[in-house]
């Protein structure tokens, strides 16, 4: 039995989102035919909400809600799955210059996994850092599809994945209710807990899935005078 999860989402707990978790789950229910995701992973910026409890919403909507974190490192932004007390004690998640290699190795040692997100994005993605610095070791997977990507970003991510043989995930990076589930990750296994998710992320038995609508491109206007 497979499981489709949106691995990268931000609720109102992140400072740049106003999306309540309940509204996300309601939207998934509403758009199930177009975005058939079984669950979401909340990856709030620079924090881990250890005490948040969404079980009543999971029961109400029949959608899995897991918690992780998006942190900032010297190699760009990264998703940390399987956050536990040891990790919270070891790292200051609010630090915007965490050492990426230490984070990857230590989180793995403590039972979790780190997945660099939007690697093709300028400044905060792995691709740009790899142009001038040595590649990181022990990276298992990176986010191949990001719902907020601009033109060319997912292509740069694909280039990185092809070159280094990373496993590939997908996530919406949603900060708005209506953008939830646009990109996700399809796992071949059944996932019900964060431990299941971490275990599966380490196997590489998954693929990114793209539910973004294919809109017609608006023709470019004829440029007027430039001054």
């Amino acid at each position: 039995m497979s499981t489709i999860l949106d691995l990268h989402t931000h609720s109102e707990a992140s400072e740049d989102s106003r999306a309540p978790v309940e509204a996300y789950l309601n939207w998934i229910k509403l758009r199930q035919a177009e975005r058939p995701v079984d669950g979401i992973v909340l990856t709030e910026h620079r924090q881990f909400n250890r005490d948040a409890d969404y079980r009543h919403l999971e029961d109400k909507f029949g959608t899995l809600v897991l918690r992780a974190s998006e942190v900032e490192t010297n190699y760009g932004h990264m998703l940390v799955f399987g956050v536990n007390d040891d990790m919270v004690a070891r790292f200051d998640f609010a630090d915007v210059r965490l050492d990426a290699q230490t984070l990857i190795d230590e989180v793995a040692r403590m039972g979790g996994i780190v997945v660099p997100c939007h690697p093709g994005r300028p400044n905060i993605g792995l691709y740009e850092h790899y142009q001038s610095r040595p590649p990181l070791e022990n990276v298992v997977a990176v986010e191949a599809l990001n719902g907020g990507s601009r033109k060319g970003e997912d292509e740069r991510s694909a280039e990185l994945i092809a070159k280094y043989g990373f496993a590939a995930t997908g996530g919406s990076d949603s900060h708005l209710v209506s953008l939830i589930g646009l990109c996700a990750t399809k796992f071949s296994a059944y996932i019900k807990t964060i431990d299941d998710l971490v275990r599966e992320l380490k196997t590489g038995n998954y693929e990114p899935v793209d539910f973004r609508p294919r809109r017609k491109t608006v023709p470019h206007a004829v440029a007027m005078e430039s001054r």
């Binding site: 309540p20 509204a23 209710v177």
Partner: peptide, 8 residues
């Protein structure tokens, strides 16, 4: 192009 959706 400006899009809008009622979300709640």
């Amino acid at each position: 192009t400006i899009h809008g959706f009622i979300t709640n």
